[in-house]
């Protein structure tokens, strides 16, 4: 009984805002802008979603988000699989230190790093480029992804690799023909996770990219929050649209999620 009550009360706190987001996004303006607000919607509209599609600036942010997140996912999978293979199947001096360095790097405040990153990218003529964003996102996604993939590679028996060597396989074909196919589910999870991190990021895209290369999170802030009277229903519709890929991605990731979360390497 107590348990059901607890779930109900926390459920209201958790899903109340989600409900309100949905209601506002599908309600006509006249009904939204009144006080006190109607708790139950009486009329339904899709005009706010149509407004999003009609806004070329938003479509540009969307394209940027897709490009940057996809490139981040690909680069992350590539770099983290080599690194994870090394951590899992090789022993050399400094390996432990490297592992801890990579894990610890997410403890450094990003706002502080951005001061110098901005100057460096500016000097290199890379401000306002996809590359600056992709490199930054990938670096901060690596810790979790390396840890996640290392877990996968650890489960691949060394005998499999030894047998391949006996058959004359070089390191290249061991990685690309044996390890990566076996770890495919892990690679997909890693890529999806990196995609979401790139998709959700705010501060790097805000600082390192100008309006034409900005992704959706800073793009939405610039579009809607500068105005005196924000177009709230449009913003709620946009919020739902931006959240959708992430929610789908996490539904797919659920299986790996708890293990990844409990490894303590995810930054919340």
């Amino acid at each position: 009984m107590m348990k059901r009550l607890t779930v109900a009360v926390i459920g209201i706190f958790a899903f109340g805002p989600v409900y309100w987001l949905l209601v506002t996004a599908f309600t006509p303006d006249e009904d939204v802008f009144q006080f006190p607000p109607k708790l139950w919607p009486t009329r339904f509209t899709l005009e706010h979603f149509a407004n999003l599609a009609d806004n070329p600036a938003l479509m540009n942010y969307l394209v940027n988000s897709i490009i940057v997140s996809t490139l981040t996912a690909l680069l992350t999978v590539l770099v983290s699989s080599y690194t994870a293979y090394s951590f899992s199947k090789f022993r050399y001096r400094g390996r432990k230190s490297l592992m801890y360095l990579i894990l610890a790097s997410q403890m450094f405040p990003q706002g502080l790093l951005l001061i110098t990153l901005y100057l460096v990218f500016s000097a290199a003529g890379m401000l306002n480029s996809y590359l600056a964003l992709v490199l930054s996102f990938t670096t901060f996604t690596l810790p979790l992804c390396v840890w996640m993939l290392k877990g996968f590679f650890d489960t691949i028996p060394d005998e499999l690799i030894e047998a391949a060597k006996v058959d004359g396989a070089g390191q290249g074909s061991i990685i690309h023909r044996i390890l990566l196919p076996v770890a495919l589910p892990g690679l997909i999870a890693t890529g999806l996770f990196a995609f979401i991190r790139g998709w959700n990021d705010f501060i790097f895209a805000l600082t390192l990219a100008g309006p034409d290369k900005q992704t959706l999170p800073p793009g939405l802030v610039n579009t809607y929050l500068g105005e005196f009277q924000a177009a709230w229903p449009d913003l709620m519709a946009a919020s739902l649209a931006v959240s959708l890929p992430v929610v789908i991605g996490f539904a797919v990731l659920q299986r790996y999620l708890v293990a990844g979360l409990t490894s303590g390497a995810v930054k919340g």
């Binding site: 690194t83 199947k89 490297l98 790097s105 502080l112 790093l113």
Partner: peptide, 24 residues
């Protein structure tokens, strides 16, 4: 060879985390 595999990650950490940290 194992260490070489980590080079891309190490270079990225140097460039995106450690150098900016020292610089800032």
């Amino acid at each position: 060879f194992g260490f070489l595999l980590t080079l891309p990650a190490v270079v990225m950490f140097g460039a995106i985390v450690l150098y900016p940290l020292a610089g800032s």
